[in-house]
């Protein structure tokens, strides 16, 4: 299967008042065509930075130290502005976590959708197309995301819609440009749990219909388990484990992954709540070696100095931890 997106040794940080922070430390992962990949990590592990790097929508004080982001053979990080915009218009779409701040509160939904459609592949040559045509396209889009009463939604302002409806509008917006790859940054975390299920189903159906690849970033294990094929586990800007969903959840290897899986409240049995001690390391002065060292119950001498390299557990499962070699 074709490699759609490959991130190679990406290192990104920010300029802060205390110096330069190194958030992403040589991160690598890949997404094949038609694959659904999940990235798990707690808040502050750099997953948002990672997604933004893929689209190169980092804030002005961001610093890219090195690495490549290769989409269909072209490195996004060294692409020209025109190429980048073409990608953003025609290939890659993104759904953000908070639908309220992702939508412009001063514009009606229809205006925001029209804008998105005008600058996408959906209509070749906007000139000469009437408003009605745009409206029809928009209504179809809204129907695809299972919004009831699309006419009314089009004419509404975002604050008049519920959270679930807003997120569906955001999905529609992302669909106008996500013809190949969809990025989703915690798309349902802010929603009510019964609405979460509906929205996830919509995304799942659309992904299957359009044969999209997805990168879904979240800290909610359960949601990922029901949605993605492969999972990458991220901690403090380092990829520490990766494998198929079943492998990660039922045979986690890295101490962090194991703590993660154990912390998820379960419906049956006792909740282990193997709470980890310590905090995420300081990105301005990150420790040498494995960044998990300050919280790892199994720490060894080499962990403090040498960054563990990926060790193969199976064809699809690897872990970066000195316990398993590396």
């Amino acid at each position: 299967m074709e490699r759609l997106l490959a991130v190679e040794n990406l290192s990104v940080g920010y300029r802060t008042y205390r110096g330069r922070s190194k958030v992403l430390d040589s991160v690598s992962f890949e997404v094949l065509r038609g694959e659904k990949v999940g990235i798990i990590g707690e808040t502050g592990c750099g997953k948002t930075t990672l997604l933004r790097s893929v689209l190169r929508i980092l804030p002005p004080n961001a610093l890219i130290y090195g690495g490549k982001v290769i989409f269909k053979g072209i490195d996004i990080l060294s692409s020209s502005h025109d190429n980048l915009n073409k990608l953003r218009r025609e290939s890659i779409g993104i759904i953000f976590q908070d639908p309220m701040s992702a939508l412009n509160p001063f514009l009606r939904v229809r205006d925001q959708l029209y804008d998105a459609i005008k600058y996408s592949k959906l209509i070749e040559g906007y000139k000469g197309k009437s408003k009605d045509y745009l409206r029809e396209l928009s209504i179809n889009l809204l129907k695809e995301v299972a919004l009831p009463d699309p006419q009314r939604v089009l004419d509404s302002y975002p604050f008049q819609l519920s959270g679930g409806m807003r997120q569906r509008v955001c999905i529609a917006l992302a669909l106008t440009r996500a013809n190949e790859l969809l990025l989703a940054d915690e798309p349902t975390t802010n929603l009510d749990v019964t609405i979460q299920e509906q929205v996830l189903n919509i995304i799942r159906n659309l992904v299957e219909e359009r044969k999209l690849s997805v990168i879904l970033v979240s800290h909610a294990l359960g949601m990922l388990s029901e949605f993605v094929d492969r999972i990458y586990v991220m901690y403090a800007g380092q990829m520490i484990e990766s494998g198929r969903a079943e492998e990660i959840f039922f045979d986690p290897k890295h101490p962090y992954t194991r703590a993660l899986v154990a912390s998820a409240p379960k419906l049956i049995g006792k909740w282990e709540a193997e709470a980890l001690f310590g905090r995420v390391p300081d990105y301005v002065n990150p420790p040498e070696g494995c960044r998990f060292q300050s919280r790892c119950p199994f720490i060894k001498e080499e962990c403090r100095v040498i960054k563990p390299s990926p060790q193969k557990i199976s064809e699809t499962h690897w872990v970066a931890c000195h316990i398993y070699g590396g």
Binding site: T194, G222, L267, I268
Partner: peptide, 21 residues
């Protein structure tokens, strides 16, 4: 029914699936 679960056994003990609408 809306709670995403991790394991098969959890899925089994969930009561009759009521689709969220």
């Amino acid at each position: 029914s809306s709670i995403p679960v991790l394991s098969e056994e959890e899925r089994k003990i969930r009561p009759k699936k009521v689709r969220s609408i």
